[in-house]
Design a protein around this nucleic acid. Structure first.
Lengths: 253, 253
DNA sequence: TCGCGGATAAAGTCATACGATAGAAACAGG
DNA sequence: CCTGTTTCTATCGTATGACTTTATCCGCGA
């Protein structure tokens, strides 16, 4: 997949060696290359395999264990934790998913979560926003309008729009869901054909309507319009997901 | 505060040394003893202070950095990250909050999040539950009825009830919010006067009504009743939070 | 005043050694 | 033959010291 999204809130420093090891292990776990319960390469064996010291390796494992991806116990070894233990809402875990093939179920689940949370967030944002919050949201929207569709700055502006809405809720725990929403958006944009002008325009209108409701401080309206936005995005993404498998089948025929 | 809740899903092994260090640092950070931007004890100095090797200390820091609590950079040192970077929905981070004094704003925020998410989860659970899911939810409810109010098994059963509902949604990312809901419940139970028989009975009825809706596979009803449950819980918790500061003020008068 | 560059302090990495523990295997007793 | 116990050993956990890398700081020179 190799989609390299600008993971802003990511905690892993890719420059450091332990970070590279952690990344490597994480991707292997998430893609399923290392299945649940599998022993990770023995700490001693590993240094032969990728020539890294135990120190770096162990720090990588500690990093991953904090996210529930692995579980280390003396003697029994370090094993891949069951998926139920993974913190799927962790920004790093979400980002690592981009290096695996798109998992339709996962993307649907994320959209479902988003559909529950984001309209409520928009309601709060409309009710609680400061002028500075509004300015931030508007700036993001301008960024979406003034840049070419699906270009990098446009995507960033889209993410910033939604993130700014979360920020305006003034609810820190709720804001922790912003990365999940960002990931969902990035999945949908990634899957999208870059020439889908129609969808882009529709999305822009959806965003504008949400913005307007927030300007008017109309919470219920903002929530309703955000629902509409998410549903539109979901529908077009589902079409694209269906389309991804379609050509394969046709090609085989 | 010293409330020692059974943090089931916690990733930190308290038996190991690095785990104790991580715990210690985390609590200092969350309580604000180490304010944002504060340098953590220098890796070399630290070994004098708490007599632990750099290895254990560094692994603790790696664990915390994965949750966004700290940020380490060469030369500048390891610093406490700003609160916006913290992953407040991480099970460990939530658990560590129990060792700080109750923060009313934080508890309200958690309730707010819960109010957005849990009714929707109940709806999905009602629609998608298997018989096994239902059995699990019912078992938890029985656990609440058959044990004395506010006793440890009762609390566990309460948490299990809500967790089972999340499990029945069959949405793994959504399930990652279960720890946040559990934390909210534990806060409210912790604050509660243990002899508040009235609230306990009311809560039991709320739970029973949710359960019944799930039995009937009535999603809308389940959502509505879960909303009622959360709101009831929120209201009584807010009364208790107000009561906590009230006596102080009265005492000072 | 500004920019460059070296000194420096702190984290990052490595190698090695030893301790602790939980599985596994060997063994003894029924 | 089965079961419980002991011993063994592989593996993680911890400690230590040395070296490397990086970014900040500060002073020098243009």
């Amino acid at each position: 997949m190799q989609l390299h999204v600008h993971a802003r809130v990511t905690r892993l420093n890719p420059d450091r060696l332990f970070g590279q090891v952690a990344h490597r292990l994480a991707v292997a776990i998430i893609t399923g290359t290392s299945p649940t319960g599998a022993l990770l390469p023995n700490e001693d064996d590993l240094k032969d395999e990728i020539s890294v010291s135990r120190t770096a390796y162990r720090e990588a494992v500690k990093f991953l264990s904090g996210k529930g991806l692995v579980e280390a116990r003396p003697k029994s070894g370090t094993r891949v934790a069951p998926r139920e233990a993974w913190n799927l809402l962790d920004p790093d875990v979400l980002a690592w998913h981009f290096e695996a093939d798109p998992n339709e179920k996962f993307i649907r689940d994320l959209f479902e979560l988003r559909l529950f949370v984001e309209p409520s967030a928009a309601r709060l944002a409309a009710q609680r926003r400061s002028d500075a919050d509004l300015e931030r949201i508007e700036a993001a929207f301008r960024g979406m309008v003034e840049n070419p569709p699906y270009a990098e700055p446009t995507v960033s502006a889209d993410l910033a729009f939604h993130e700014a809405i979360f920020a305006a809720t003034r609810n820190p725990p709720l804001q922790c869901l912003a990365p999940a929403v960002s990931a969902t958006i990035q999945w949908s944009l990634f899957l999208k054909a870059p020439d889908d002008q129609f969808f882009f325009t529709a999305s822009l209108i959806d965003h504008e309507r949400v913005l307007e409701a927030i300007v008017r401080r109309d919470g219920d309206l903002a929530a309703a319009r955000m629902s509409g936005l998410v549903i539109d995005s979901l529908n077009s993404t589902l079409r694209l997901l269906a389309g991804r498998t379609q050509p394969e089948a046709a090609r085989n025929a």
